[in-house]
Design a binder for these strands. Structure first.
Lengths: 208, 208
DNA sequence: AGTTTTCGATACGGACCCGTCTCGTATCGT
DNA sequence: ACGATACGAGACGGGTCCGTATCGAAAACT
């Protein structure tokens, strides 16, 4: 985002409308949710959708890439706080359920699909998305798994590769939400999946 | 692919070069593998990459969509025949290993990523890819799982939703290959993952 | 009140791509 | 040999998008 004319000298004249910033970002999210690829997004189309002049957009962002970076920033905050629940099983279900919800949200799943393509080019955009959304979520899940390991819900020898466990937990649901868009995601899916995962990780002599 | 001037009347004149067909399709695959999005592909760029006149491309395909459909057709054949191996575990490892290999192949993974994004628009292209590549592979895996179920490697109550099991098996490795491009995929990953999966699915009193 | 900046709208030149067409040449059938 | 077609190269008009500039009106500051 471009700063208004440099903080020092001027603060005179009509100030920028915060509503416009919001309208533009909302417009981008709307277009993505409606099926636009990132490549299909145009500054002209964005301005039109936002009901805003093209120059007004360029006054704030130097180009599409910068704008999209700011759009992504508004998506970051949607990661839920990680409160340990009643049991390891509950926490696991909640983690999977969270992925399911993102899949049901047109907006989030559309963004994710867009980012997957961007990953090929490994752009700044993808780096940002990975750092703020994916990595955050993965470390949170890794922590959860480590807690479960400490409590004896997971075979110790699996601890050598927590990343594999994270993929193990997230993969199935993620595949449903990204690869089979429109696949039905019934309410009890997280629970059934979590039990399947638990069974895969638990010690053979575990009493749970 | 457009037929040469109608089968009936004419077969005179210089025939079309089969080498050109190949060169064009190869060029498209090369461009995709190098990171081009499908949207970024241009008929001009394709012709240039193939060392071919633009008109020569249009003589064979009416447009990009049709060309890409033919390109996809050349990718279909790479699905391996499904020979039951020594054990259920071996078969499972082979199935996961196959996904890993596709992930290592820049070409295949790039195509897959492209298709995932294209799926939003639900084009003819996606339908074709899903039918010929994804669905084929999934039913093969479902058959494998049913065999395993019949042999007692899988808890009977899991049989009610084979699709979930397919996601369970493919998800983790697919996530690695599509969502974390460039992630290392060590040789023993399929084996470790398959054992994790087996453990999740096996009956508690299973002797295996 | 007067100044300054933003606002939406729109015009502009440049770049790129589309799909068609026209070259001169090459390569086939007859 | 000859006619027909394919070939590479590239010109062409038409379209879209980029990023900048200009307009009169609106909205803030001094």
């Amino acid at each position: 985002m471009i700063d208004p004319p440099s903080t020092a000298a001027a603060r005179r004249g009509r100030p920028r409308s915060a509503a416009v910033d919001e309208a533009v970002i909302e417009a981008v999210l709307r277009l993505i949710a409606e099926g636009s690829t990132l490549a299909e997004l145009t500054m002209e189309g964005i301005a039109r959708e936002a009901g805003v002049g093209k120059a007004t957009v360029y006054r704030r962002w130097p180009g599409k890439e910068a704008l999209l970076l700011d759009v992504l920033a508004t998506v970051d905050g949607e990661i839920p706080e990680e409160v340990p629940g009643a049991s390891f099983r509950d926490d696991l279900i909640r983690a999977v359920e969270w992925i399911r919800r993102r899949g049901l949200a047109k907006r989030d799943s559309a963004i994710m699909r867009s980012m997957i393509t961007e990953a090929q080019a490994s752009t700044e955009l993808w780096k940002r998305y990975h750092e703020t959304v994916i990595a955050t979520r993965r470390t949170a899940l890794a922590d959860l798994l480590k807690r479960g390991m400490a409590d004896g819900h997971i075979r110790p020898e699996l601890g050598s590769d927590v990343e594999l466990l994270v993929d193990f937990v997230t993969g199935p649901m993620l595949i449903r939400t990204t690869l089979h868009p429109g696949a039905d995601l019934p309410d009890d899916l997280p629970e059934r999946l979590a039990d399947l995962l638990l069974e895969g990780m638990r010690p053979r002599d575990c009493p749970f």
